[in-house]
Nucleic acid binder design. Structure first.
Lengths: 134, 134
DNA sequence: TTAATTCGGATAACAATAGTCCGATTTTTA
DNA sequence: TAAAAATCGGACTATTGTTATCCGAATTAA
């Protein structure tokens, strides 16, 4: 129902936190405590963001995470893509047609695609920087 | 994860079908068969759309549904609102604060609200008419 | 060597969505 | 007036997806 998952919500909030503390390596524990986000769940989220090149991890004691890039160049669209496979509003827009077992009856693909593209435009043009300018 | 529910997907498709057959009363059964949508599930959906004044029902044999208004004046936003209570991208944008147990830690409300408003604009400006112009 | 951290896989708990069942009511028409 | 075809309404079930947890391994600074 057009809601972002907690993984994405937590992810964005964590990135915002890192953006506001740029320069220092920040542990999952610190973010978890400061933002009241379940530690284990946040850890997973950060690991995925790390694998997708949005943040950089440093292992070991004194380890943690740091933004990989300027907050202005990390978009919400990228974050969503990293944390989920499909960010499509209806199944028939999926690349693998198997996702939509009603493909032969789908009469809404084109107009839905237009709407999807407009939403994508918004997500591509919203960056982490806008979340730290509060 | 930013996906529309089946209720909404089916609802839009059904409204599109009605728009393309305007003038005649159309039964849930016909729509269900033509679009390969589970009958009982579709029925519920149409009943809700009826209650919300988006379509008009006619009971009894030869009964069915018909659009309540010109397709140009029924927006996707209205349909979503009719079929779901909350169409918000994050919990903290809810009116009743109880929905967000992290409200005191929420640092993303303002920027998320801006994004929400942009999405709302899109949904308010996409009508059923655009779905029948295929 | 120890402590604090990330990493990775499995799994459990929970919630929401999707779908079904069934009986009641309405209305047309034969 | 009876039968048939439709909507209406509530309860229920099944399935899936999200959210969260557990635990052990690997890494690294001090």
């Amino acid at each position: 129902m057009l809601k972002l998952s907690k993984k994405i919500e937590y992810g964005i909030q964590a990135l915002q936190y890192m953006a506001n503390n740029s320069g220092s390596v920040i542990s999952a524990k610190e973010i978890s405590e400061q933002l009241n986000i379940p530690y284990e769940f946040l850890s997973k989220t950060l690991q995925i963001l790390n694998k997708n090149g949005i943040i950089i991890s440093q292992q070991g004691i004194k380890g943690g995470y740091i933004l990989a890039r300027d907050p202005k160049s990390t978009t919400v669209a990228e974050i969503i893509k990293a944390l989920e496979e499909n960010a499509i509003i209806v199944d028939c827009l999926s690349n693998d047609q198997e996702n939509c077992d009603r493909i032969n009856f789908c009469t809404i693909k084109n107009p839905m695609n237009k709407l999807q593209e407009k939403i994508n435009f918004l997500l591509n043009n919203t960056t982490i920087a806008e979340f730290s300018e509060v």
